[in-house]
Amino acid sequence: MVDIHSVSELLKDLEFFREFGEATIELLAGCATNVAYRPGDYVFREGGSADAFFIIRHGDVALEIHAPGREPLVFETLHPGDAIGWSWMVPPFKWSYDARCRTVVRGLSFDATCLRGKMEADHEIGYQLMRRFLPVMSRRLLGARLQLLDLYAAEKAR
């Protein structure tokens, strides 16, 4: 059914863009394309150029870190409605982990160069996007801290 919606209509349906005005949505839509992945595909890989960000509309994406000699460690999974990645906002614009599709994934990809240009040209858009991404970053940072505490672990030796 995706085909009958224009990209901007898709954007309006997403919780992530709920607070954005019509004009901003249109601008963002100009940088967006529909994307689809098969299970096992990587949306991006560690070290790769962060030239886009993604909103998941369908499917699950696992964020993984690889270490030599052990299997990849999944530290977070993302689900429909979630945004993937903020490395596109932060120089040097490189991904710092892998994003692997665990299912068929459909979503929207936003061209980072396009977005950065629009944010630079119109700081209001820049502010709106920052304002939307900062809580995501803040929540994921808190989540990461809680995971780091390893709260459910049995204490090692007293």
Binding site: D60, A62, E71, L73, R102, G143
Partner: peptide, 9 residues
């Protein structure tokens, strides 16, 4: 690990 199909977080 990668085999887990549920949520991580």
């Amino acid at each position: 690990g990668p085999d887990w199909l549920g949520r991580v977080g």
